[in-house]
Each structure stands twice: as C-alpha cells, then as structure tokens.
Nucleic acid binder design. Structure first.
Length: 869
RNA sequence: GCGGACGUGGUGAAAUUGGUAUACACGCCAGCCUUAGGAGCUGGUACCGCAAGGUGUGAGGGUUCGAGUCCCUCCGUCCGCACCA
C-alpha cells in the first residue's frame, strides 16, 4: 500500500497556502460573507494541549467547507494577553510581561499553524497592544460620559492571594476563579459598570438568538436572575411594648370585618408622609400576596439600619458580636446550606406590619444577603422554607396564609376567625407553591396571582410599597488593583469634574476623562500588588502626576486597571477592521462582517465573557458604533477533552498530551480527523492515542484509492454511495455532527476500496469531501490528479438525488413487530404488491399457517408488518 | 434544592426523528502475508441456545401494528447555579 510522508507533505502545503494568501478575507466583496470566530486564547507559558484545538479544528472545518461553497470567509485569531499569569511570572523572574507574552505568542502561533488552521493572520490582534486597547479605553470613556460607570465604595469580593478586587463573575463556589483562594468581602474604592441597566435587554434578547444552545441561554437567564415582586416599607418603632391596634381603616372597611380602632398618629406615619423621625426597612419580596403571613423581619448583618439605630438597640453589644462573628466567616461558610441558620433579634425595636399594624420582631441573620434586593426581607415562615426553618429555631409565630387550590371550598372568613386554619403555630409543613389566600383580610379567596396584583395596588395607593423587578446580576466591578491590564483613563482633579449625565446620581465629582488615548501602560520595576486600593502603577509618580486636561492644575491618574474581560468584550469587531486608527471600526467593515455568523468556545464562558460581550455590544449599538443588537448569531460550545485517565489534563496529574507530539508522529491531518471523530462535539471525551492511529489508517486508505483512478467509472452502487456521502457530510458539517460526517467518509472510502476503478472526477469528489478535515493530504492528492489550483478554491461537490438513489430497496418483513424475513424489491413498489410478495415468502407462509391476519402495515421501501392472532 | 444535558457492546459511539438496535472506529480473537513496523489483508466479536428460536438500549409501568426514540414513576451520571427572599 502506498504510504505518505506527512511531515514534508504538510509543511509544504502550509507554506504554499500562506504564500498564496489563501485565507485572506477581503472586506466588502461581492461574495456572501461568513464570519467564523474562535474564542481567542490567553497565551500561557504552558502552550497548547490536545484539548485546546478541538474547537479551532471544528471552526476550521467549517471555514474550509464554506470557502469551497463560495463564501468570503473571515476566520481570524488573536490574543487575550492581559492577565495575572504574565504578571505573576514577572514577579518571580523580573521578565516584563510584554516580553514573556510575546514569547508565548510565538509558540502558540507555531502550534496553531502546525495543525493547519486556516487563519487570516493579517488580522491578528492582541489586547495588550496600545493600538488595540485605546479602543477598549475609548469605549470605557463613552460609558463614563454617559453615566454608565460609577465610583463605588461598596464591599466587594477580594482575593487575598491575587490582591485584587473581583467581579461576581470571577468567583467559583466562593473561591477565586484564578487561584482557588477563599474570597473575602472588602470595602474598596472601585469603578463599576452599570451592566444591570442592561439586565432586562440581556435577558429578553436571548429570545432573539434561536441558534444558541438552550443550555447556554438557560445559564445566562439564571445568572441574570429576574424576579418580579414588590418592595415594601416597614416602619421601625423604638421602645414600644404591647400590640398596636389594627391601623388599616380602608382595608377593614372593604372587608367589613375588621376592628376600626385606628391610631391616627400611627396611621399617618405608616403612610410615609411623616418627617422621617423613624427608620424604615425596605424589603423585597416575590410573594407580596403572603404579607399577612409575615411574622418577623430579617436584615442582613451588613444592613445600615444597625448603625442608624445605634443605642436604640438594647442588646447592641450582642448584635455587634454576632456581626463580627459573621464577618469572620468566608462566603463559603456563610452560604453553606447545610448549616444551621443563625441570627439575633434586635431588642427594643420592632417593625410595624404596614397592613395589620402588628409589631414584628426584627432579626439580623446571615441567611439574608446584603448584596441582593434591599438586604432585608419580611419573613413568611408558613410559605418559605428558609423562614420556616428560622422560625422553628427561634420559636417565632407561623401563620398560614395560602392553601392549595384544592382546599378552596373552605369558608375563609377573615383574620382571627378561622376554625381550622388559624393555627398560629404550624410546625410541620411549609407550603411554598401558589394557591388561594386565607387569613389575609381583603385578599382572602384570591389566587396567588390575583392577590399579588391586589396587594401591590393597595401598597402603591397607600404609599407603602410598589411593584419591583429585581435581578441577581450585579454591576460589573471594573477595577483591578494590578499592573498588567488596560489603564483606566481617568484623572482626578480637585477643581474640575466631568458631569456625565443630567441625572445627579450619576455625577462623578473630581473625575474627568482623559481623552488623549491611548493612555499607555508604563514600564515598571516593581509589580508587587500593594494590597490596597492602588495598583503597582501608583508608585510611578511621573506617570501618576499629570496636569488636569481641563484646568491645567496638578492632578492624579487613576491607577486601577481594567479586568481581563474588558479587552475580550469587543475583539471580534476589531478583526473586521484591525488597522483603523480613526475609529473602533469603520461603518463599512461593520456593515459587511457584523454579526459573527458562528462562534465556538468553551461553556465556561457562558456567564462571563458571553454576558460581558453582549453587554458591550449593546452599548456600542446604543451609541451607533454597531448596527446589530447581538454580536453572535450562532453559538456552539466545545466539549472538553479529558486525559486518558479520565481526569482533566493538567501538569499536576502529569497527563498532558501535547499536539506537537501527535502531529509530528501521526500528522496534523490524522490529529484533526481523530479530534472530529472522537464523539459528539459538545460532549466531554477522554483522549485515546489509539484513535489517532485509526484516523491515520483511514487517511492511508484514502491515499491508496489514488491507485484506482483510471478511465473506467465506479459501479452504480458506489456512485450512489458517493452522492449520499455528499449529502451527509454537507449537512453534518453545518449541524456540527463532525463524528458522523467522518464515519460517512469512512464508509465511502471502504466502499470505493472495493471498486476496480474510479474516474478522476469521482475520486476528486471524495477528496473534496475529506478536504476540510484533512486539508494537507487532500490538497496533495488533488493536485496530483492534475488540478492546477488549490482544492479549497474548487467548488464543493453537489449532491444529485437521482444518482444517490438505490436500485432496490431491502424490505423487512415482521410478524407482530418481530423481524422474520427480508426481501429485495424494486424501489417504490406499490404497497399491495409488496404485501403480496411478503405473504408469499416461504418463511412467512409457515409463520402464517393457521393464523388469522388482523392487519398489515406497509411502510414504503422499509418494512411490512403482518399482525396475526 | 433549582436549571440543563444524559444513561445503548470490553471502549469512543451510531440509529434517516416512531419502522431491521449496535453503523463507523478502538480493542480483542482466529487465519493469511511479510523485507518484523505505530504494518497490511480476510473473517469473527451483545447475551442464552447444537439448532429452531428466545432475550436485550439504567429499573418498572403505559401508549402503539411497531418504542433506544413518545408518556408516567423511580434510580444513577455529568455540567451550571445555589440561603437570590
């Protein structure tokens, strides 16, 4: 058998393709465009392992196939090169990140090239290039000027190892996603981006993305976490005792059953028109319909109320003791679901129930999070499991106010008068589903939905609360106290400030935009993070001290840098117009290439990069830079390749396989075919080097077929197989079913191997189908056939339905659904004839003997099922 | 706990979407060939049975002429989120 020397062969074609500019995409051609994008890598010192290129190979297969189908394909690559590893490496070795990053990029690029990936390197970008990050900074300033960026002093996630603040998205189970350290909460001056302003659009527009996998969309929906409910004000009263009479005149009158002894003074205070002599606790709830079941309030230990009330809290020392105890716990410990709930009552203060006027105890407890909603809740222990657990532990009243719909016949007369459901202490069950309101005054008998609506109207009319939509998504903490990132281009001047919007709340006094972009990252001698709100840049005094661009007086630069996600939030746009020094992207390039038609990368980016990029894009849309609301039309995620031992590939386990070794031993083509053949693209699979040998055998068989090329055509059956394969491979590539595409190619090559002879055209078509997967070998064999130009400039073979037809159909004969016989019949034979033939079969006759035929089902060209009794 | 994906040979996996379960490949077994290499070729490879035949897609029910595929109940695996009120 004819063998092939993959090393010379592959190197030869790679060089030729580069020389000929085969992958160069031209802006604005007449041809239809197709933009295929990989998530660009962080060029680490370790280089690629065999898992990394799986997605790149898939996009490469699509790229080459689309090129052959006549598209002007853009398939670029670049480097997401800011980030901690380069900085940490600098700390250790003193080698500047610019140098180490450049080295790593050379290695990465060589590795990618060795796999034969069709990248247009003319468009290579690097997020650390000042010509690139000036536009990252520019977009940030555009946000700043529109009030979408604000300075905040909220406690944020702080990694004590990396010595930097982190965004919510940078955590994994309460650990720093980078280094695995337990993250602390730390108050820190920081810049934050109002991504929550876009929460609703980010959520709603997911529905406009039919070509995204549901799993990714669901993850984003959950991350954005929209909850519809109400915000309700509870007045705090101090040093009171005894129960206050029911204050709700209107409610009582409407229901016609309530006592009308109203404390006028209290009433006016409750309606929110008083002078602010008492504190208010705002709570958020998704179940305002259960308000009559609220028996206590809980605020988070961080809640400002504790400071506000101060000595009014009789057990202030104890409360503070509890709080410091909680603060010493990590988020991990705090949110451990298995642990007992803990809390402490604020003695001497009560909250007034805004409808019933009952005095409710107030607790501080760490099961209420400071970062969500208002950091305070009304506890309804009968209908919320957490509140229920807490109420049991602290012996608090539990009032049932919702019953399952099946119990709706119960005569629910009103508060305090129910015979059966007035159980103030329901111990065992906690009903969290929807149902019908009971014990709820004017809500009694209403369904949960109706009760929600009615109570919200009531709260609004009485200025006690209003409807409220709440998101889990938090504003994007945008400052990093580290060196190796884009400088935030702001200057602090004591005399000037930019007034970014007309809305007072968005004023950033003292901070002004430095429009003189790029603000380049200066060289430093010391990278050590300070552990404070400043980055190592703070030490470079001649960089930090500047003249105010507005007034010319002495001013200081912001020394925080941007998070790594900044540069990757818009890089796909820059590929379209990489050399533009006037604008982020030209209108022409944007109109032509945007949006990305196919985007492939790891699912780990579902709630990080993919949310940030969608947000960034929407902002650019709002300011007229891009013309679409969404950046990525079709998204596929790549399944992990595990090591042969089934674990993740890692230096730690010593199970890393380097693609360099595989490519030099078996060839890049065999490597590519194997990775695409391993299994479904989006599923995790363990690596098996034997599989590469199998792929290599297939390529050898494909090569061997060249010996059969002659004047005589292949058989009709083989031609039929060829056309079926064209159909299958074409649709499988679009559907990302590369494994079955290759299996179809293997079947074809096996079938052609049995032929005496095949024509140049027939062999050529087989080569074209294999070309996206095994580009080097296919090119070699194609040009051997005498074609003057690249196989990738040839037209993708077209499927001919007539040629693909079989001459005959094999029909299965079943008795009662069990296969008993099969026969070959002419295609599309009428059902009656097929049935007659089947019944006449010797085997079938014996099965039918003495039986009564109940029914016969004939599926054309497939089967006959005879039902007997 | 919530959300998503899934469960088929010794292994990775197919199955035209309700119509022959295990295609394709790895591995293994037997044979052939050889200039002994990461070779190549031929055949075999779900289980029980000598056979006829029977049984088989995590378990159990159901719908149907017919179920890996649809419905219900349960068990298990992987991924994401997780005290989000």
């Amino acid at each position: 058998m004819r063998e092939y020397q993959h090393q010379q062969l592959e190197a030869k074609w790679r060089q030729k393709w580069q020389q000929e500019g085969l992958y160069t995409a031209e802006n604005g051609q007449d041809k239809p465009k197709f933009y295929v994008l990989d998530m660009f890598p962080y060029p680490s010192g370790a280089g690629l392992h065999v898992g990394h290129p799986k997605g790149y190979i898939a996009t490469d297969v699509v790229t080459r196939c689309m090129m052959m189908q006549g598209y002007n394909v853009l398939h670029p690559m670049g480097w997401d090169a800011f980030g901690l590893p380069a900085e940490n490496y600098a700390l250790k070795t003193g080698v500047h990140p610019t140098i180490s990053t450049a080295d790593h990029i050379v290695n990465y690029k060589r590795q990618l090239d060795d796999i034969g990936l069709a990248y247009d390197w003319n468009r290579e970008i690097n997020t650390t290039d000042p010509d690139y990050y000036r536009w990252t900074q520019w977009t940030f300033l555009e946000m700043f000027k529109r009030g979408l960026v604000y300075e905040s002093h909220e406690p944020i996630n702080w990694c004590p190892t990396c010595k930097t603040g982190l965004a919510n998205e940078d955590l994994e189970n309460g650990l720093c996603e980078r280094c695995g350290t337990v993250v602390e909460k730390k108050p820190l001056r920081q810049w934050a981006v109002r991504i929550t302003d876009y929460a609703n659009r980010l959520l709603a527009d997911l529905d406009k993305l039919p070509d995204w996998e549901d799993s990714i969309k669901e993850m984003q929906r959950y991350w954005i976490g929209r909850s519809v409910g109400a915000e309700i004000n509870f007045k705090v009263i101090i040093n009171t005792s005894g129960v206050i009479p029911h204050p709700s005149r209107e409610a009582g009158a409407k229901a016609g059953i309530l006592p009308v002894t109203v404390d006028q003074r209290l009433d006016s205070r409750l309606r929110g028109n008083d002078t602010g002599e008492s504190a208010v606790i705002k709570v958020f709830t998704t179940r305002p319909d259960t308000i009559f079941g609220a028996t206590y309030l809980v605020i988070s230990p961080e809640h400002e109320l504790i400071n506000e009330l101060g000595d009014a809290i009789l057990n202030l020392n104890e409360v503070q003791g509890y709080i410091s105890q909680v603060k010493n716990k990590s988020d991990m410990e705090r949110t451990d679901l298995n642990k007992d709930k803990s809390g402490i009552e604020l003695q001497g203060v009560k909250a007034l129930h805004p409808v019933t006027g009952h005095q409710l105890p107030i607790f501080a407890a760490d099961y209420v999070l400071s970062g969500y909603g208002t950091g305070a809740i009304m506890a309804v222990p009968a209908h919320d499991e957490r509140d229920h657990e807490f109420a049991l532990k602290y012996n608090l009243p539990i009032i049932k106010v919702v019953v399952p719909p099946a119990l709706d016949q119960l005569n629910t007369v009103g508060f305090n008068s129910l015979p059966e459901h007035t159980d103030i202490r329901v111990v065992d069950d906690c009903y969290t589903a929807e149902g019908l309101a009971i014990n709820s005054d004017f809500l009694d008998g209403l369904s949960t939905a109706a009760a929600k609506e009615k109570i919200i109207i009531w709260l609004t009319e009485n200025k006690i609360g209003q409807a409220k939509v709440q998101y889990k998504l938090k504003d994007w903490v945008f400052s990093r106290q580290r060196y190796w990132g884009e400088p935030i281009p702001l200057i602090y001047c004591e005399y000037c400030h930019d007034n970014p919007t007309n809305e007072g709340e968005r004023l950033n006094p003292g901070w002004i935009a430095d429009d003189n972009l790029p603000v380049t990252l200066p060289m430093v001698d010391h990278y050590e993070p300070s552990g404070t709100a400043e980055s190592p840049l703070a030490n470079i005094t001649d960089w930090v001290n500047v003249k105010c661009p507005r007034c010319g007086k002495a001013a200081k630069r912001e020394t925080n840098t941007m998070p790594q996600w900044a540069g990757s939030s818009w890089y796909y746009l820059r590929y379209c117009d990489p050399y533009n020094d006037k604008e982020l992207i030209s209108k022409k390039a944007e109109k032509y290439w945007n949006p990305v038609d196919l985007y492939v990368g790891g699912a780990e980016h579902a709630t990080r990069h993919l949310i940030y990029a969608r947000f960034w894009h929407k902002f650019l849309f709002d300011i007229g830079v891009v013309s679409t609301e969404e950046p990525f039309a079709k998204l596929r995620h790549v399944g992990l390749i595990l090591a042969e031992d089934g674990r993740k590939m890692s230096k730690r386990w010593n199970n890393v396989i380097n693609p360099d070794d595989i490519c030099s031993e078996y060839g890049a083509d065999a490597f590519r075919v194997y990775e695409m053949f391993m299994g479904p693209f989006d599923q995790p699979v363990a690596w098996n080097t034997n599989g590469v040998i199998g792929a290599r055998k297939f390529l050898s068989k494909l090569t061997a077929l060249s010996q059969k090329v002659g004047d005589d055509s292949a058989s009709k059956a083989a031609i039929s197989q060829l056309h079926k394969t064209i159909k299958k491979v074409t649709s499988d590539i679009i559907d990302f079913k590369f494994n079955t595409a290759i299996s179809a190619l293997m079947i074809l090559v096996n079938a052609l191997g049995d032929e005496e002879s095949l024509t140049k055209e027939q062999y050529g078509m087989a080569l074209q189908l294999a070309a996206p997967f095994a580009p080097h070998l296919a090119e070699e064999l194609w040009q051997e056939l005498g074609h003057g130009q690249s196989i990738f400039l040839s037209s993708w073979p077209r499927f001919d339905a007539e040629l693909a037809q079989d001459e005959a159909a094999v029909v299965v004969i079943q008795i009662n659904g069990k296969v008993r016989d099969q026969m070959e019949v002419g295609l599309d034979m009428p059902a009656a004839d097929v049935e007659a033939l089947a019944k006449a079969r010797e085997k079938i006759v014996s099965w039918l003997e003495g039986k009564e035929i109940v029914k016969v089902i004939v599926v054309p060209n497939k089967l006959v099922n005879i039902v007997i009794k």
